[in-house]
Write a protein that binds this DNA or RNA. Structure first.
Lengths: 353, 353
DNA sequence: ATCGGCTTCGAAAACTTTTCGAGATGGGCG
DNA sequence: CGCCCATCTCGAAAAGTTTTCGAAGCCGAT
């Protein structure tokens, strides 16, 4: 045939998908050894394993099981701190929704006081990888540095929602504008005429609680109201905390006329404390919640709250973790969604004003 | 080395784990074809595929990807009906707890109005199998007969918690003693002196709602109290239903002095309706809830409820589905856990008695 | 030194998946 | 009717992966 003739069908296709043999050659070991690393068998020397893992990452090797699952079902591990509550539930719902849309399955786990038991951080991270998780999302929890490092080392994306401890700069996180929320709630109460305003919030170490508290303080300062330290109580985001701390505040000789709750549960606890003392909400005591979970609208009277877009936070978290897994670079390591004041039935002007 | 000498190490091990070759031989096809069936490729004739699938089931063949996941991480698919609420959350918590104990991962999905979209029931079931699910648990939901059949056909265990529609006899389910619960709640109110007792519950087609309603009726009959049909409203297990239906009942010329709620959310809606009309609970109206979710203890006053052991129901459901997967025969296709009356602050003697 | 236990690794075997082409089938068309 | 072509099925062979088992090396204790 004329023209340029025909070359014997050069296998022109570009960078072939790497196989175990590829990796084995460049590592100078046998295929069997590489297979063992991939399958996490334990008869491989740590050094050898590390080297091969590095090469696997460089070559972007995917084991066939993962390749098969690739398009159909990626899975993301979701770790929830402590007990499941209304807050958790709404975030979960958002994550599951986004997961359905993205064709991603959500595996729910628990991050108890410390972590998943019985294994080293690195073994844990590799376990997640072996189980085929495309990433992990932690809600509210405090992951140890070792665990964060282990995840990073195996290349597993991590997103934290409302981190309890102040996250390191290199951990991507999703939250809301807690400072603005704390400030808005307090300003709302100031605007109604309150001057003695208390704050009951979560753990002092919690980043989102600190932000809310500082928002509260900033609003007070902005209004020229003196800050009374005894009106601030930080403990946990629990109903019981609200009830006990609320009772303590109410029993103060110079009791506050309004209480900013760091969560809906705390606000409900405060309302119970008020009810137990025959104090009417909002006539004699104003209360605000934080989150706008289903609890807020089912309370009587319905809670005035700072709404956190919990479902959207779940959406964003999932999409972010998937994007990280896809190797996209993120615009920012921290996303904050806007909070919003929702005025309902637990705030009113103070008794004598 | 005397005595019996030594036999040349006969390979005595019993029924070997089946390989593709085993299946291929008994089906009279090539290994390649069997592999294609396992991997759901589409160049296999439907007849051939069906035959091979049957043999795969008979021989209990497990693809290597599933085998790997076997000991370490079995996963169970959890399908939740509709929106996530306090009820759902507590069941989920129970399932996750049991999952941690059993080393089983829980993937959360949603069972929207109809089902997972876009696929036939059989494809859906096979997808779950291919994804390595050891079983599925449905909470509250109504699975179509076709879906139940499809799951049965691929040998996937199924457990339903509190089925919305009356389950077929061959579907294993976990519930609680709803009839006894409805009766206990009503008897509690009768014992306080109430005679005009209403019932607001969920969907008429719902099995658990029917049981609760009949328990209510049985208690009334047992006490010789006439049944007033206008005091029974069935709709959905929602707060709004409680509020609207509660308002309707309160506005009745001959209004009831107590209302049995079919869920905590309904009871809270009723309380809101009462509050909106200036009716005090429990002094002027008694209300009972059903479930004992976190909503019950955070309400003001705290709800008197029939407690369902939701966490335990989750535990039982997970353990049951795993047992089914392990091929154990169950004692019973339906497990009912005991309900329990928890008296709190929303029930009291009627106004004039 | 020698032994025994232990770790690490690879050759070979076993197993699975994919590719590619051969036969069968079944219209459409001259 | 016979031919051609597209399509469907299937398997042989190639490619890829995992497992088994034994060799080699490395202690530490005789």
């Amino acid at each position: 045939m004329g023209g340029s003739g025909y070359a014997p069908r050069m296998p022109v296709r570009g960078p072939k998908r790497p196989t175990l043999a590829t990796i084995a050659a460049s590592a100078g070991v046998s295929v069997a050894t590489v297979s063992k690393v991939v399958n996490r068998r334990d008869d491989v020397a740590p050094d050898t394993r590390a080297q091969i893992e590095e090469l696997l990452r460089q070559h972007d090797y995917l084991p066939p099981s993962v390749r098969r699952a690739h398009g159909a079902t990626t899975t993301v591990e979701l770790l929830i701190h402590g007990r499941f509550g209304a807050y958790t539930t709404q975030v979960l719902e958002g994550i599951v929704e986004a997961g359905i849309e993205a064709g991603t399955a959500i595996v729910v786990g628990r991050l108890d006081d410390q972590h998943v038991p019985g294994t080293t951080p690195h073994a844990w991270a590799r376990g997640l990888l072996a189980a085929g998780r495309a990433g992990t999302i932690v809600v509210t929890g405090a992951l140890s540095t070792a665990h964060v490092d282990a995840l990073a080392q195996v290349g597993m994306p991590l997103v934290v929602i409302d981190p309890l401890n102040l996250p390191r700069a290199d951990v991507t996180s999703v939250g809301s504008t807690n400072f603005a929320g704390g400030m808005t709630a307090t300003r709302h109460l100031l605007g109604l005429g309150h001057r003695e305003i208390a704050y009951i919030g979560g753990p002092p170490s919690s980043g989102c609680n600190q932000a809310r508290l500082h928002g509260y303080r900033a609003a007070l300062e902005g209004a020229g109201v003196a800050h009374r330290p005894e009106l601030v109580i930080n403990d946990e985001f629990h109903y019981e905390v609200g009830r006990v701390a609320g009772a303590k505040l109410i029993d103060l000789p110079d009791r506050p006329t309004a209480i900013v709750g760091g969560s809906d549960t705390i606000a409900l606890g405060v309302m119970e404390a008020a009810r137990a003392r025959g104090l009417r909400v909002p006539d004699e005591l104003s209360v605000t919640g934080f989150d706008d979970t289903e609890l807020a609208t089912m309370a009587a009277p319905q809670l005035t709250v700072i709404r956190q877009p919990l479902r959207e936070m779940g959406h964003v978290a999932l999409r972010t973790v998937l994007r990280m897994g896809a190797g996209e670079t993120l615009d920012s390591h921290h996303v904050e969604l806007a909070t919003e004041l929702v005025v309902r039935g637990t705030t009113a002007p103070p008794p004598f004003s």
